[in-house]
């Protein structure tokens, strides 16, 4: 049970973003530009960064949602699975490994990001903007994970829920749906 009154048909982050819309607006816009805006990192790579941070923060809702989004964008689920097991042996480029390592350090504390970790990423060809965006995506998910778990929002157990959410994130991105979320009320009852 969430610690505050949230709409029952909107588990996880969505209920929070609908609870207070004036703070949700910049959080949504920031996420949209970071994860879907113009970038030399693919959308799939950026979802992997969101996933590794949420996984490290033990946020089940965000981990399931962004794993599903990354898998949908990449067209397979092997990469996200192996990344969660071990970044070093994950089937991603050396540059991505270095950026994922930076994200994992940011998750612990900003001060834990070492010159060595940054130099390694630069040596593998990471640009200043890629390093910046990696750090900010990791920091942003430290916000999301704490918001979602700190108010004890509902984490649905059904994998279909996260696939439907991922399809929405891939198709519509992170902006608020123009029609709102009332249409999900029916689906929520059907799933249970």
């Amino acid at each position: 049970m969430p610690y505050i009154s949230l709409e029952a048909h909107l588990p996880g982050i969505t209920g929070l973003l609908e609870y207070r819309k004036d703070t949700a607006a910049p959080i949504r816009s920031l996420t949209q530009v970071l994860l879907r805006g113009p970038s030399t990192l693919s959308e799939g790579e950026r979802e992997l960064i969101a996933t590794i941070v949420s996984y490290g923060n033990e946020c089940k809702f965000c981990t399931a949602a962004h794993t599903a989004a990354a898998d949908t964008l990449l067209g397979e689920s092997n990469t996200s699975q192996r990344m969660k097991e071990n970044i070093v042996s994950a089937p991603v480029s050396e540059k991505m490994k270095a950026l994922l390592e930076i994200a994992a350090l940011v998750r612990q504390n900003g001060k834990n990001v070492t010159d060595e970790a940054i130099q390694k990423a630069k040596k593998e060809g990471a640009t200043d903007i890629e390093i910046h965006d990696t750090v900010l995506i990791a920091a942003l998910f430290c916000l999301y994970n704490r918001y979602v778990d700190g108010l004890a929002t509902v984490t649905p157990p059904q994998p279909e829920f996260y696939q439907a959410l991922a399809d929405r994130l891939v198709k519509h991105g992170y902006n608020r749906l123009p029609q709102g979320y009332d249409h999900l009320k029916k689906t929520a009852t059907e799933v249970k």
């Binding site: 001060k111 910046h132 920091a139």
Partner: peptide, 14 residues
Amino acid sequence: AATFSMFNRYVDGL
């Protein structure tokens, strides 16, 4: 508190 967990990491992480 969640927002400053982001800002702090952004400021120090870079």
